[in-house]
Simulated assay, not measured.
Amino acid sequence: MADLDRVEELPELADLVLAIVDQVPEGFVTTYGDVAAVAGTGPRQVGAVMSQYGSLAAWWRVLRADGRPPQGHEDEAVAFYREEDTPMRNGRVDLRRARHTLHSIEDVGPA
């Protein structure tokens, strides 16, 4: 994963994806597909961005459409879900209760 001290300029797609992920508040999640729809790209491209630059955002808040946490980071992600009181059910995030509605970056405005 990327180290903030070593990243000088993000590729445009990475910058966009991370800005979208930054919309997701504590205790909520989104899916790769949700982020992709707002970014105008595909879920695999979002996954690639998160794989390379996810450490610059709350990576655990982006998960698969079935509620499973990011592959290879399940234990760490579940610890974050518990810390943030993210609704879970049967070892997965309960998307019905925890899914955050994303907006285009233009709709969000400056932070």
Rank of each mutant, 00 (worst) to 15 (best):
G109M: 09
E8T: 06
A58R: 13
V46A: 03
G27T: 12
A57F: 04
A36P: 07
D22G: 04
L63W: 00
E76M: 08
D85E: 08
A65C: 03
S55Y: 12
Y53Q: 03
V17Y: 00
P43G: 11
P25E: 02
V17S: 14
A79H: 11
R97I: 01
R92F: 10
R97A: 15
A65I: 14
E12W: 11
R64Q: 13
Q52I: 12
P69E: 05
T30S: 06
R92T: 15
A37D: 09
M1L: 02
W60E: 12
V21P: 00
G91R: 09
R97W: 08
R44G: 06
L63I: 13
A48H: 04
D66S: 11
V49I: 07
T86D: 05
P110T: 09
E76F: 10
M1I: 04
V49Q: 00
G72M: 12
E106F: 13
A48W: 02
I20L: 03
A48M: 10
R99C: 04
S51L: 09
R44A: 10
G40K: 07
I105K: 15
T86Y: 00
P110L: 12
R97T: 01
R97H: 09
Y32C: 02
R6D: 11
R82W: 15
V108H: 01
D15S: 07
A77G: 02
L10M: 00
G67D: 08
E106D: 14
M1K: 11
R89S: 11
R89V: 06
V38S: 05
D22R: 09
T101A: 13
A57M: 10
L13Q: 13
G72T: 15
A19P: 03
G67Y: 08
E83R: 11
Q71G: 08
T101H: 05
W59N: 11
P70H: 05
Q23N: 00
L16G: 00
M50C: 09
A98S: 02
T41M: 02
E26S: 14
P69T: 13
Q45I: 12
L10N: 08
P70L: 15
D94T: 05
A14R: 09
V38R: 07
V49N: 02
G47K: 00
A57W: 00
G67K: 06
